[in-house]
Amino acid sequence: MNILEISDLTVRFAEFLAVKDLNLSVKRGEILGLLGPNGAGKTTTIRAIFGMVPYEGEIRNYASSVGWMPQHSPLYLNLTVEENLRFFASLHGLKNPKERVEEMLRLVQLEESRNRLVRNLSGGMKQRAMLACAMIHDPELLILDEPTAGVDPPLRMNFWEHFQRLKDAGKTILVTTHYMDEAERCERIVMMRAGEKIAEGSPEEIKRFAGEETVMLWVEDMKGSFRILSKYYDVSLNGQISISVKDAPSELPKIISILEKAGIKVLKSEIKRPSLEDVFLRLMEE
């Protein structure tokens, strides 16, 4: 069941088409990653969801509450961390936010800095304060625009562990990111380029769909093997024989059989799957 549905979304800035006919649905309880280079239209899509830019198409939201963590953490610089949290709690109509504020401060590890002005916080601390403000009302759907930009690796891990806990508690997260290891943690990914969706699926599906696998062979007669296999496959020779195929597990027995028929013994074989980064870079180049 979907919590957010976007149909034929188009966003124009004068002549520039920032998002073009985007169809996207976020399933209740999942972590959906929006992946793409700068200018792909990720942030514009999010701003359209919040009605901040004029758009064509339809956006249907079925969540009872939504939390938003924009890029660059636009908090009130002359308020303390706690004052910001209390302010956002008031905007969401939280009657007695004391406990929730404490919980959020603990979560983002800012208990010690609760009375510091936001303007005096480091970039990573501002991100943490922003995340706490976005979650202050315990939203059903959390929309995070590059939440870990400027956050150090241990805290990034901490953020994602928390996102996972939120997901386990039934929350839904739509997150944009540049980090491939973060994208790997999403259940589904939507890749965007120049305002258009170019791939959608689980990280594994996307890797299978868009990336070629590599079969690596170590054989007795390298040159002979290279000559024979080149008739059938895209082969390269670099210390071992590398063969690019769509589905390596099913192709490997066929390859071995071809070589054995030619009297060449296979000493060792390995299958190398592409990383999400390989797929991402390939799709962006196309």
Binding site: W68, Y76, L91, H137
Partner: peptide, 10 residues
């Protein structure tokens, strides 16, 4: 940037 953020709330 706080204007957009507060308008994402009720």
């Amino acid at each position: 940037g706080t204007l957009e953020l507060i308008f994402s709330t009720p």
